[in-house]
């Protein structure tokens, strides 16, 4: 097991190195930050001075080496815009993104799993015929559309929930629904397919042959087996959500990492963009590792071998 985790960690380091490298060069294609930082009537010399201050006047290669050697020491540079370490800014936004991601996952799992189960159990009957199309509609509405719709109805018209900002559970409701409805469909469909598949398995017939009730068969036998693939997909969704939800955060003025990403890309705040991407990648890798470890807990078949599913 320890060897397995060590292997995964090594893999993670390689992944992270690849990600920071790509983002390092990618942001530098977006333009010159000095031009944005300089005042309107700045001269070419002013701009050159700013570039020198930011260390952007050296060769790309030496900038990259400098960036890596600093990053290895845990130093991800200073924001060009705010007078703070870039990672510090990102981390200060991270709890808000976590809050939104958890809210969205609660919505997606809380509705998606029961909906998936009901559609599987009442296959071809009204629960499936109403739930699945509804979920599909929810998924096919882009966040900027469904988010604005929710704001119009529940904030503007009925004043039930705030339309923007963060603070308290009430403020979380609309953004969580907007963001969660996207993952909801994926999870519901996965749960439905997985349940249908499990319902045909021989062990279900064995359980029924024991005289177990429908409820007992469902919750004692099928549920756990059927949720294994749902666990994988939930991990992927969680990892995505934790990287920051750009659209939803912008619509609801949610001060999370997604909003920060947009702001820092717009102002070409390279260190912050790099820190955002690095953090998202770390979270992604960590969540996936966690899901794999969780698999070992839930599925005894993977426990002794220590192999990944």
């Amino acid at each position: 097991m320890a060897r397995y985790i060590a292997g995964r960690l090594l893999q993670a380091v390689v992944t992270l190195l690849g990600v920071v490298t790509i983002i390092f060069f990618l942001v530098r294609l977006s333009g010159d930050p000095a031009r944005l930082l300089a005042p309107q009537n700045a001269t070419a010399t002013d701009i050159a001075r700013i570039r020198h201050q930011l260390g952007l006047d050296t060769s790309l290669w030496s900038q990259y080496v400098h960036f890596l050697s600093q990053a290895l020491r845990g130093n991800f540079g200073y924001s060009y815009v705010q007078d703070q370490p870039a990672m510090h800014i990102v981390l200060s936004r991270f709890p808000n993104t976590v809050e939104l991601a958890v809210g969205a996952l609660v919505v997606a799992l809380g509705i998606g799993i029961p909906a998936g189960i009901l559609s599987a159990v009442y296959r071809g009957r009204w629960p499936e015929r109403t739930l699945m199309p509804l979920i599909l509609v929810g998924q096919s509405m882009p966040a900027f559309w469904s988010g604005i719709l929710l704001i119009l109805v529940f904030s503007v018209r009925f004043h039930l929930f705030p339309s923007s900002g963060q603070g308290g559970l009430r403020a979380l409701v609309l953004p969580a629904i907007t963001l969660g409805s996207l993952s909801l469909a994926t999870i519901a469909r996965m749960a439905r397919g997985s349940f249908l598949e499990q319902l045909d398995r021989d062990y279900v017939r064995t359980a029924r042959a024991k005289g177990a009730s429908g409820m007992r068969v469902m919750f004692g036998h099928v549920l756990r087996n059927a949720l294994l693939p749902v666990l994988t997909i939930t991990g992927l969704e969680a990892a995505n959500l934790l990287g920051g939800a750009v659209l939803t955060e912008v619509i609801f003025a949610w001060p999370g990492v997604g909003q920060l990403t947009v702001q820092s890309v717009n102002s070409r705040d390279f260190p912050v963009v790099q820190a955002v991407v690095l953090l998202a990648a770390i979270v992604y890798v960590a969540v996936n590792l966690l899901v794999d470890l969780l698999y070992g807990v839930v599925d005894p078949r993977l426990r002794l071998t220590g192999a990944a599913p």
Binding site: D202, Y203, R205, T206, A209, N225, V298, D299, P300
Partner: peptide, 14 residues
Amino acid sequence: SMVFQEPMVALNPL
């Protein structure tokens, strides 16, 4: 009660 043909899959793996 009934014993099934395929013992490999007739039991709940979890």
